[in-house]
Write a protein that binds this DNA or RNA. Structure first.
Lengths: 344, 344
DNA sequence: CCACGTCGCTAAAACGTTTTCGGACCATAT
DNA sequence: ATATGGTCCGAAAACGTTTTAGCGACGTGG
């Protein structure tokens, strides 16, 4: 009996390997091997199967494949990031690293809600994701998800459990690089205006900045790090304060591009030329803010896309059994535009 | 023979229904029915199964479920949007509409590359997504994907094939609302600075604005719509030009929030008070730009999240057999902040 | 002529569920 | 005693694929 008689008319359903095999006049097993470039198939037969598959527009059912391989070919990306500021670059890094050839990304937005997070987690586990990347909304450590039965990599926000694997940006190095760049520009009276002091990153960046400053034998202009909020308004206000307190300041390191925008505006208003009299460097390289400011903003790019790539690489390794753990730190780089320049 | 002897020690693999059944001392069939709240299961038995599942931390294999139900419980979100400006709100709308209870989202970023798009498409088809939402990078019509065997809804950018189903924002109504708001504020000399003229949306918004203007018996200040680019720099330059050409202008409708920022800056520099002397309204409600400007920006919110919700609703309907077609238009709304105010 | 490999192919098992069908059992009515 | 009906439960098929084991046929060296 040939398979032909067994195959009923399909009503709207996808083409199956059985139908391909029937059309090529071979068994399902042979068809499978032919299409997957396995050996033990004659050249002529293979060609016949490939043609049949082509003609029927065959597309293998990934669920069925997943059943036998015990791999879903899927990773979960669990984010708490409301606006997607950080998750999108990470997501692109993930796609690049996995080649998106055999790995698809299941994206879930927990929106900072722990319940929703649990919910998504259950769904991902049920889908048998091969691995999971957890992207935090802010760089501070977050609670560990614990043992889930699949590898997990935390990106941007590290897990609070050192047994987990985390990949984060080096905030301290970022702060250091920013100030070093200003020092290289010949600046001597450098101030630091930054954001919410409840963010660990604020302090890390400040520590890096202070370190670079003391390495250069300089003191912080304004006397102290100016903590506030991640907003342009704070950048403006703090700058006015600073100008009062320390009129001969020649550079400002802003803790974010939003703050830097405020700094720029206040400086412009006070009649200080940027970058000639005062140089300004931001943090984040959020292009909608940094590209089109007056002047375009020199800023520290935290390298989120790279972060995503590294996270994906670590996840891929863990999936193949080479599990890692601990916090891996990735440095960013300074993107030089026109808001900083050598003195004179 | 009990099932106990059949169940081998599992090495790292997920708990299976067979194990739950064994622990509860029932057959797999009964266990399935018990957990899915099907009838024909005794109350005591059901409880025993539920407890067993709980104790073993059982999570049903979605792939296996998908095999029998012929549904993957998955929708694809195919985006071409580089920065995720539009896709993220849409994605949230999708999650909301589907409740994320039984539907997960497979996110793919084609990055404007047609080849990559084809590639992702194949992957999604192979995963047997129940439906597909295609989000464009700009509001202009895009090429149809054709017939894929699953329902497709185009969001933001409509398909060029009227047989497809598209959901887009009503750009013309947006332009109209913006000007109507300015007219309500008592403004009489209203100009319109907008972006790239190769965007259909530029012209749609302008048409809406012009319509509202003529309804109010007003002429466009500056004489013509000022097309340029979607940037702050263009907003600044165009404003200076405009101020020269028509010094007694009392309102500007900017085609994007970025442009509006430039307008605001140029106005400030020219010594014009906003909103008292000149009112400014933007478009997009991109909060990082609109919330923290001086003053905070009144702007047209295109309602992307709602767009995503509607797209998801239409997709859900199509999945259940109620297919639609044609272009559905969703209106946004004006978000009033401080950059517009009644005259006097 | 026999032993032995190799090649090309197929049947069947396995993956983890849901669902259909029928059987066992019990109570009640005839 | 037999029929009737209802309630619980289990065996088995089905979903679409990969993989393993095995079967002929053919060639090759003894």
């Amino acid at each position: 009996m040939t398979l032909d008689e067994v195959v009923p008319a399909r009503r709207g359903r996808a083409v199956t390997l059985r139908e391909v095999a029937a059309r090529a006049g071979v068994s399902i097993a042979t068809a499978s091997k032919a299409l997957n470039n396995r050996q033990h198939v004659g050249a002529a037969t293979r060609l016949r199967v490939q043609n049949a598959a082509e003609e029927l527009d065959f597309s293998p059912n990934a669920m069925a494949q997943g059943m036998v391989s015990q791999r879903s070919g899927t990773v979960g990306l669990l984010t708490s990031d409301l606006v997607g500021r950080f998750s999108i670059p990470v997501m692109r890094g993930v796609e690049d690293a996995f080649g998106s050839e055999k790995m698809s990304v299941l994206l879930c937005d927990a929106r900072g809600d722990r319940l929703r997070e649990q919910h998504h987690l259950r769904a991902l586990i049920s889908r048998r994701v091969d691995g999971l990347i957890v992207v935090g909304a802010r760089p501070d450590p977050r609670h560990s998800l614990g043992h889930l039965g699949v590898p997990v990599v935390y990106a941007y926000a590290p897990s609070d459990d050192p047994a987990d694997m985390s990949v984060v940006v080096d905030e301290q190095a970022g702060g250091r690089m920013a100030v070093e760049h200003l020092v290289t520009c010949g600046r001597r009276r450098i101030a630091h205006i930054t954001g919410d002091p409840s963010y660990g990153a604020s302090h890390d960046r400040a520590a890096g900045a202070l370190g670079a400053l003391s390495d250069a034998g300089l003191a912080l202009a304004g006397g102290e790090v100016m903590y506030g909020s991640w907003s342009e308004a704070w950048g403006r206000g703090a700058t006015r304060l600073l100008l009062d307190r320390d009129p001969d300041l020649d550079a400002v390191f802003a803790g974010s591009d939003q703050i830097a925008r405020g700094v720029l505006d206040a400086l412009l208003e006070a009649g200080r030329k940027v970058p000639e009299e005062v140089s300004v460097i931001g943090y984040d390289n959020w292009e909608v803010l940094s590209l089109d400011s007056r002047p375009p903003l020199t800023t520290v790019d935290p390298g989120l896309e790279n972060l995503g790539r590294v996270a994906a690489l670590r996840l891929a390794a863990a999936i193949e059994g080479r599990e890692g753990h601990g916090v891996e730190i990735q440095a960013g780089r300074v993107v030089t535009r026109s808001s900083t320049a050598p003195l004179h």
